[in-house]
């Protein structure tokens, strides 16, 4: 296990390096002059020149890239063009927010999707199955921004049960923290639930037709035991793959939901940085997103081997 993990961590290095080259190239291809955008209403020719020099934008691209990578290897992820704040500190502030929102969304998604998927597979082609599939389709089709605004108007403006915005960290006030995140988490969770439910349903259908399930039923085990202890545990493997992908995407920042609910997460940071061409911040955000995806993939792979002892980490079944 330890060897496997070390091996995978080492593998991350060339991947991250490759990602950094791509990010750097793409960011510099974006039209629009960072200095001009930053100066906005105050741009004058010498201010532009001075600012470009201060931002390091007058150096040749390979030099800029080398400075950035060199800085990162020393733990210096640069400073925002806007007000010089540390990229690392800002990203560190935002990651927990997006992480909490993502985890809550996943919990909501799974709480809805697992029972629904199991039920739909077990009682397939019955009313329960059709109802669950219809609900899944609705969940997939609803635009998240519309759902978000509707929830705000219902729960915040009309019922005054939940705040429309105003995130606070959980260490400061856990109650308010959860109350501000429950709506955005629900909006995200509904869409994820739809995907997971359908995946689980088809996975369960495959497992339920396997021999060992027939054996379990023949042994006289209760339906619940067969479903959960035997079938579900096997069916859930591909669903974990889906969860891994979903979590990776979520951690990259869910921009629209974060914008509507004014959640100060990675998504908004990324978009803000793009609009204002805050290159150092944007580079930092994308690197951390890439790192999150890699880390989640590793965690999912380890989780496979824990859930199913037949899967060894080196791949294949024993």
């Amino acid at each position: 296990m330890l060897r496997f993990i070390t091996h995978r961590l080492l593998q991350m290095v060339p991947v991250l390096f490759f990602v950094s080259v791509i990010i750097f190239t793409l960011i510099n291809l974006i039209p629009g002059d960072a200095a001009r955008l930053f100066l906005g209403e105050e741009a004058s020719p010498d201010a532009l020149v001075a600012l470009r020099h201060q931002m390091g934008l007058d150096r040749p691209l390979p030099v800029q890239y080398a400075r950035w990578i060199g800085g990162m290897l020393h733990g210096d992820f640069g400073h925002s063009f806007k007000d010089n704040r540390s990229v690392l500190a800002t990203v560190a502030q935002k990651i927990p927010v997006t992480a909490e929102l993502s985890c809550m969304a996943l919990v909501i998604a799974w709480t809805i999707a697992i029972p629904a998927g199991v039920l739909a597979a077990w009682r397939r082609r019955t009313a329960a199955d059709y109802a669950a599939s219809a609900a899944a389709l609705t969940g997939l089709s609803i635009p998240n921004f519309w759902l978000g605004i509707m929830l705000i108007y219902l729960f915040a403006v009309n019922l005054h049960w939940l705040p429309a915005s105003g995130y606070v960290p959980p260490t400061q006030d856990l109650g308010r923290n959860l109350r501000t995140l429950i709506m955005p988490a629900f909006v995200l969770g509904i869409i994820l639930a739809a995907v997971v439910m359908r995946q689980l349903r088809s996975s369960m259908l495959e497992v339920l037709s396997a021999d060992f399930v027939r054996t379990a039923n023949a042994k006289g085990l209760a339906a619940a035991t067969v479903l959960v202890r035997h079938a579900l545990r096997n069916a859930v493997i591909p669903v974990i793959t889906v969860m891994g992908i979903q979590l990776g995407t979520l951690l990259g920042g869910v921009v629209i939901t974060e914008t509507i609910f004014s959640v100060p997460g990675m998504g908004r940071l990324a978009v803000e940085s793009i609009y204002s061409r805050d290159y150092p911040m944007l580079e930092g955000v994308v690197m951390f997103s890439a790192l999150s995806v890699l880390a989640v993939n590793l965690a999912v792979d380890i989780l496979y081997s824990v859930i199913d002892p037949r899967i060894t980490l080196e791949g294949g079944r024993t």
């Binding site: 605004i149 705000i152 108007y153 915040a156 403006v157 005054h160 705040p163 429309a164 915005s165 105003g166 914008t259 509507i260 609910f261 004014s262 908004r268």
Partner: peptide
């Protein structure tokens, strides 16, 4: 000062008393 970028959410925040 709170930053609420979405127009509808901003108006909603006033109406809900936030």
């Amino acid at each position: 000062y709170r930053t609420i970028v979405d127009d509808n959410a901003r108006v909603a925040s006033l109406k809900s008393g936030d």
